[in-house]
């Protein structure tokens, strides 16, 4: 059984159909690229998978549970982590506190246990701080760990979001344009990081990215969307040579895919 099964998802905003009947699977430990021109419906689909939007039609099954009607905050405990296209950090907090906030779903201690610092609350906190320290090192955030997150460059903030999603040890990580605002060298580092993360965290990744060479390099499979419809689904090579994909990108005036092809 695949880790994620997206079935016939339809999302309408008033008259606009942002997602028009999309289905695909992501297997455990797989890196799946999700590509498509601007406005294709990628972020909308992410929001459906992570429970932020309820689809008008269709269903999502994650790790054996139908999650289409789960409350939003139930998704993280099920093992779904995500980052946001336009950064959604906790702006009053430091880098470390942001990452620790990501560990919320791994904890249990409530108001009383926290106020009294009961043993299990302290143990949880220690474990979270330990994992935060590891992630700070992995994502090269140690130098800025105790700075307010709001003062940092865009690329660094994106790494903070990734650390915040990783600390809860998700089974599936949704990344919405993680390479946005990065230069060439940084994109290369990101590709290496994805491989490393998949290996050591044993998770699947669903990756939305306009940076086509990155997607094609790291993905096991690629799903392409255009105007809310799936136009291709297969290995990077298959998708790259699909006539629909080439047409979608050329028609959009977006040269990247054609270039990559």
């Amino acid at each position: 059984m695949p880790l994620l099964e997206v079935r016939d998802i339809v999302v309408r905003f008033g008259g606009v159909t942002a997602v028009a009947g999309v289905s695909f699977d992501v297997a455990e430990g797989q890196i799946c690229g999700l590509i498509g021109p601007n406005g294709a419906g990628k972020t909308t689909l992410f929001n459906v998978i992570s429970g932020i939007y309820r689809p008008n039609e269709g269903s999502v099954r994650f790790d054996g549970h139908i999650t289409t009607n789960e409350p939003r905050h139930r998704m993280a405990p099920l093992g779904l982590g995500r980052t946001f296209q336009n950064l959604a950090l906790f702006k009053s907090m430091t880098v470390r506190e942001n990452i620790l906030a990501g560990a919320h779903s791994a904890g249990r201690a409530g108001f009383l246990a926290n106020a009294l610092r009961l043993p299990h609350a302290r143990a949880e906190d220690r474990a979270a701080r330990q994992r935060a320290a590891e992630l700070l090192a992995l994502l090269q955030l140690e130098a800025v760990a105790d700075l307010p997150v709001i003062d940092l460059p865009f690329g660094t903030q994106k790494r903070v979001e990734m650390a915040r999603a990783l600390i809860s040890r998700p089974k599936l990580l949704l990344l919405d344009e993680p390479a946005g605002g990065l230069n060439h060298g940084e994109v290369d580092e990101l590709a290496t990081l994805f491989q490393h993360v998949r290996q050591s965290f044993k998770l699947g990744i669903l990756l939305v990215e306009h940076h086509m060479s990155l997607v094609m390099r790291v993905s096991d499979k690629v799903v392409a969307l255009d105007f809310g419809k799936k136009i291709a689904d297969g290995t990077p090579d298959e998708v790259r040579s699909s006539p629909e994909v080439i047409r979608a990108y050329l028609g959009d005036g977006h040269g990247d895919a054609a270039h990559a092809a």
């Binding site: 906790f90 506190e97 919320h104 926290n114």
Partner: peptide, 23 residues
């Protein structure tokens, strides 16, 4: 602790807070 961070996270960015599993 965990709850204090969640209170502030909810104030700063409710959507992200929910995505972190905060009720």
């Amino acid at each position: 602790g965990r709850i204090g961070r969640a209170l502030m996270a909810t104030r700063d960015h409710p959507t992200a807070a929910e995505a972190m599993g905060m009720d």
